[in-house]
Amino acid sequence: MTYKLILNGKTLKGETTTEAVDAATAEKVFKQYANDNGVDGEWTYDDATKTFTVTE
């Protein structure tokens, strides 16, 4: 399945996607991606759209 991440960081905004077997796996990938890019904030997940959002 394809999962999407929306980044609403103070210095980085954008979107990315990943292929993962489940939401938990996608979340690990996205949290590492956000961490690597210096984005740390509040996370939400919408199962209907398979979209994670992180907002600083």
Rank of each mutant, 00 (worst) to 15 (best):
D36R: 09
V29P: 01
A20T: 06
T16E: 10
E15T: 14
T17P: 02
K10A: 11
K28A: 14
A20C: 05
T55R: 13
E42C: 06
T53G: 03
V21H: 09
D47H: 14
K4P: 01
N35S: 13
E56Y: 09
K50Q: 12
V54Y: 03
V39K: 02
V21R: 10
T17Y: 15
T2L: 13
A48K: 10
A48T: 14
D47M: 09
A24D: 09
T55F: 11
A34M: 07
D40Q: 12
K10C: 07
A26L: 01
M1S: 14
V21N: 15
K50L: 15
E27Y: 14
V54N: 02
N35W: 13
T18C: 04
V54M: 07
T44V: 10
K10H: 13
Y3K: 00
D46Q: 06
T2S: 10
L12F: 15
T2Y: 08
K31H: 13
T11F: 14
A34I: 11
K4T: 12
K10N: 08
T18R: 06
T49F: 06
L7H: 04
I6P: 00
W43S: 01
T44I: 15
T53L: 08
V54Q: 01
T18E: 04
V39C: 05
K13L: 11
I6Y: 07
E19K: 10
D40R: 09
K31Y: 12
T17L: 09
K31R: 08
D46K: 04
T49I: 06
T49W: 04
G38T: 05
M1K: 11
K13Q: 10
T16D: 04
Y3H: 03
T18W: 07
T2M: 10
T16Y: 14
I6R: 06
T53H: 06
Q32T: 09
T44P: 00
T11L: 11
D47N: 07
K28F: 12
T17W: 13
T2F: 08
K31G: 03
V54E: 01
V21T: 12
L7F: 14
T55P: 01
G9Y: 07
D47L: 06
G9A: 09
N8V: 12
T51N: 02
Y3I: 02
W43H: 01
T2N: 08
K28L: 14
Y3M: 02
T55L: 10
D40F: 12
D22C: 04
A48M: 11
N37L: 06
T51P: 00
K50H: 13
F30W: 02
K4Y: 14
L5T: 01
T18N: 04
L12I: 07
K10S: 12
A20F: 04
G41Y: 03
G9K: 04
A34V: 08
V29F: 15
T51R: 03
A48H: 12
K4L: 10
N8F: 06
T44N: 14
K13A: 07
E19L: 12
V29S: 06
F30Y: 02
E27H: 12
Y33A: 03
E27F: 14
T44Y: 07
A23T: 09
T2I: 11
Y3C: 01
N37Y: 15
K50M: 08
D46V: 06
K50E: 03
T18M: 07
T11C: 06
Y45T: 01
D36E: 12
T17Q: 12
K28M: 14
V29Q: 09
V29H: 09
A26D: 00
G14K: 15
F30P: 00
K50T: 04
V29D: 05
K28V: 11
G38Y: 08
E27T: 04
K4N: 07
T25G: 09
Q32C: 05
N37F: 15
E42G: 07
T51W: 02
E42L: 15
A24R: 11
D40G: 10
E56M: 06
T44E: 15
Q32P: 02
I6T: 05
Y3L: 01
A24M: 10
A48R: 10
A26T: 01
T18A: 08
D47F: 13
Y3R: 00
E27D: 05
T16R: 11
L12G: 14
T16F: 13
Y3Q: 00
D36M: 15
T11Q: 05
T51E: 05
F52I: 01
T17E: 15
E15V: 08
K10M: 13
T49M: 07
A20N: 03
Y33C: 04
T44W: 07
L7D: 01
F30E: 00
E42N: 12
K4S: 07
K50I: 03
T11E: 12
A24H: 14
T11V: 14
Q32D: 09
D40I: 13
D47V: 14
G9E: 03
T51V: 10
L12H: 14
V29A: 15
Q32H: 07
L12M: 13
